[in-house]
Simulated assay, not measured.
Amino acid sequence: MRARIILDVDTGIDDSLALLYLLASPDAEIAGIAATAGNVPADRVAANNLAWLDVCGAPAIEVALGAPEPLAIPLRTTEDTHGPQGIGYAELPESRRPLSDRSAARMWVELARAHPGELIGLCTGPLTNLALALRIEPELPTLLRRLVVMGGAFNHPGNTTPTNEWNVHVDPEAAKEVFDAFSSAPADRRPIICALDITETIEMFPEHLRRLAERAGCPPDRPVSAHDPDGLRSTSPNPVVRHIDDAVRFYFEFHRHHDQGYLAHMHDPFAAAVAIDPALAVLRPATVDVELTGTLTRATTVADWAGMWGRQPNADIVIGTDPVVFFDRLITRVGDFARAVHPPARQEVS
């Protein structure tokens, strides 16, 4: 049975890889894509999603525009991390595909109502759209088959402040509304949370890009290297591989400039892989809440692992995985997909 997924993204370099992973997975089907403001503004996110669909030769998939601002605070974006357009050095052609006539929140609600118990929600950006959808339809926690969220940090430092993770930081009120709402979900429908504790172990290196290009049938003449000058561009004849290289190179450089090495944390494609196959993850139930008033800790996700609050678990937190297995799947799926969409005999640099 194929996993039918509502994808809510703030595309984003690693969001791009999550989208490609889903498009490349024969056991997944994207029912709709919600563009949420986060890494870049929502309209840019939507344009990135439409452009990736074009590059991948994807069929018509609904892309709905989300709210332009978080629920209660001004929007903060992160072009320093993801580039001015959100996709690093990649330069995707503008798409002529139309945006949906309905809002992202309305798309969430109407798809879930039309397919009760069938859809998996996958959120790799701030939770603004889902929180707005829950205000329209409070029964979403039982209408969805499952929810998978990339966000939060528990027994791990934050990546935005000392204690909080980017997606929650952008809209903590939305995150709290979502976690509170899913307190009513049965145990088998608790959200799966892919937090920094685990996603920062999902480290992509230049070797992964080389393997992906080889799998796509276009081994690079000059593979991406830590010794390259900043801003070098790919010459791959395969558009999917070329744009991935150019996007991820920017991400490598960002991590190196922040003393983390020439690597990139693949937060979002890991969450996409877990949405399709939860067996990739070791899960531990907990009660999760979001701090909204702390002077130093606002937007921190807090997990009660031991039941000290006297509340039932409302999340299953990923506490373990095998990054080698994940990257093997990513390289195989996306590499084969890139080769199928742009066969080597017909590849031309465009």
Score class of each variant (00 low, 15 high):
Met1Gln: 14
Ile6Cys: 01
Ile6His: 08
Ile6Ala: 11
Asp8Phe: 00
Gly12His: 09
Gly12Thr: 07
Ile13Glu: 02
Asp15Asn: 15
Ser16Ile: 07
Pro26Phe: 09
Ala31Gln: 10
Asn39Tyr: 03
Arg44Cys: 00
Val45Arg: 07
Val45Gln: 10
Ala46Phe: 10
Ala47His: 03
Leu50Ala: 04
Leu50Ser: 08
Trp52Tyr: 12
Leu53Gln: 14
Cys56His: 06
Gly57Ile: 15
Gly57Phe: 06
Pro59Met: 15
Ile61Cys: 15
Glu62Ile: 06
Gly66Glu: 14
Ala67Thr: 07
Pro74Leu: 05
Thr78Phe: 15
Glu79Ser: 04
Glu79Arg: 12
Ile87Met: 10
Tyr89Ile: 13
Glu91His: 00
Glu91Ile: 01
Glu94Gly: 04
Arg96Gly: 00
Ser100Asn: 12
Arg102Glu: 05
Ala105Val: 10
Glu110Trp: 12
Leu111Asn: 13
Ala112Asp: 05
Ala114Pro: 15
His115Asp: 05
Pro116Glu: 14
Gly125Ile: 02
Leu127Thr: 14
Thr128Trp: 10
Leu130Phe: 03
Ala133Glu: 01
Leu134Asp: 02
Glu139Cys: 14
Leu140Gln: 02
Pro141Ile: 01
Leu144Asp: 06
Val149Arg: 14
Val149Ile: 01
Met150Ala: 15
Gly151Glu: 07
His156Phe: 05
Pro157Val: 08
Asn159Glu: 11
Asn159Val: 06
Thr163Cys: 03
Asn164Ile: 13
Trp166Pro: 13
Pro172Phe: 08
Pro172Val: 07
Ala175Gln: 09
Ala181Gln: 08
Arg190Ser: 08
Ile192Tyr: 02
Thr199Phe: 10
Thr201Tyr: 03
Pro206Tyr: 04
Leu209Phe: 06
Arg210Thr: 11
Arg210Pro: 07
Ala213Lys: 00
Cys218Ile: 07
Pro220Ser: 10
Asp221Ser: 14
His227Leu: 03
Ser236Ala: 04
Pro239Thr: 07
Asp246Leu: 15
Arg249His: 02
Asp259Glu: 15
Gly261Lys: 04
Leu263Asp: 07
Ala264Asn: 14
Ala264Leu: 00
Met266Asp: 13
His267Thr: 01
His267Gln: 01
Pro269Ile: 09
Ala271Cys: 02
Ile276Gly: 02
Ile276Glu: 08
Pro278Ala: 12
Pro278Cys: 09
Arg284Tyr: 08
Thr287Val: 03
Glu291Trp: 12
Leu292Ile: 08
Thr293Gly: 10
Arg298Val: 00
Thr300Val: 12
Val302Phe: 03
Trp305Ser: 06
Met308Glu: 06
Met308Ser: 05
Gly310Asp: 04
Asn314Glu: 13
Ile317Ala: 06
Val324Asn: 14
Val325Leu: 15
Asp328Arg: 03
Leu330Gly: 08
Arg333Val: 14
Val349Glu: 11
